[in-house]
Amino acid sequence: MAGSNPNAKPMNLTLNVWRQPSPKAQGKIVEYQVKDISPEMSFLEMLDVLNEDLLHKGEDPVAFDHDCREGICGSCDLFINGRSHGPEKGTTTCQLHMRKFSDGDTITIEPWRANSFPINKDLSVDRSAFDRIIQAGGYVSVNTGGAPDGNEIPIPKDIADRAFEAATCIGCGACVAACKNASAMLFVSAKVSQLALLPQGDVERKTRVENMVAQMDIEGFGACSNIGSCAAECPVGISLENIAILNREFLTAKATSNNLA
């Protein structure tokens, strides 16, 4: 069965999947065979097929994170063949399609690996560290009203565009997963630059960057070495320029804020 494309031939694949029954348990790679995979399936649909097989056999299905399956929610988070979200650039795992693989391929699937992202089960990780960083300052306290009120504040088009680019971060954690240091600076920088660029975010810009960086350090993420693997693997193309903005914001805040603590 090969979907609607008559030229798409079904594939048989070998999967090396990280299985770990609980957060503290010892995990290991387990090999599975999946058959008749359509090249038009998404990667997650291929895992659904695997889980169907496992359920039929009475085995425990593989746990993995997913939600919208449209590439916008940031829930899916697989490290596929040594890359965040797999081999295709600018793509989340749910938007990665099996046509990127070939019949007979062996695919290694692992969870994000970071001390700050503990494994829930199998491929599912706990990314609440990101939530706590956002809670530390990734918001504006003023009530900005509805869309008409927001549009009352004139913002130059190029500034609005740059803020929007930063705002496209879906918080999936691919940057942390790809970074040699498991650093969260691309994620933090996207929110800091987005809000620093806009007048609504200007009011709290100093406390925001101080608190978010402090929380990032408390969570135990690594430091940025400007390697660039984060931006290279980011599914929405958040650029390293944001990390430079974060550094600038941090230096300025530390040098000029009224916070002595």
């Binding site: 090396n16 990280w18 790679i29 490290f79 063949n81 040594g82 890359r83 081999p87 290694t108 692992e110 690996r113 790809a178 040699k180 390697i227 660039g228 693997s229 290279a232 693997e233």
Partner: peptide, 10 residues
């Protein structure tokens, strides 16, 4: 990671 192809992104 068991498999890490960082040479493809940095």
């Amino acid at each position: 990671y068991v498999a890490n192809h960082s040479e493809q992104n940095s």
